[in-house]
């Protein structure tokens, strides 16, 4: 019985949050124009480049250590 009532509350909560979400949709402010005019790609490219740099550094380190290990 308790389980059943829990399911019912869950269902009610889910329905409630769904309707609440549907109402909020237009109000919540998001960076839509950043995505529309494509400037977001600039950010993506810059962040990716930085990360690629870090990864390349790690690769380089890995190669150097491998070389040293072979030398032993």
């Amino acid at each position: 019985m308790q389980k059943l009532s829990r399911y019912i509350t869950l269902l009610a909560l889910a329905l409630f949050s769904f309707s609440a979400k549907a109402q909020q949709m237009p109000e919540v402010e998001m960076a839509d124009s950043l995505r529309e005019n494509g400037k977001i790609f600039v950010v993506i490219i810059i962040m990716s480049l930085i990360f690629i740099g870090v990864a390349a550094y790690l690769f380089n380190l890995d190669r150097k250590i491998s070389k040293m290990e072979k030398g032993q």
Partner: peptide, 25 residues
């Protein structure tokens, strides 16, 4: 590893997310 993170960087910034108050972007 780096490929997965690159994917998360680009799609994480570009992909759609739920519109929630307070949290926003």
């Amino acid at each position: 590893g780096p490929l997965l993170i690159l994917y998360s960087i680009s799609m994480g910034l570009y992909g759609p997310v739920p519109r929630l108050p307070i949290l926003n972007e």
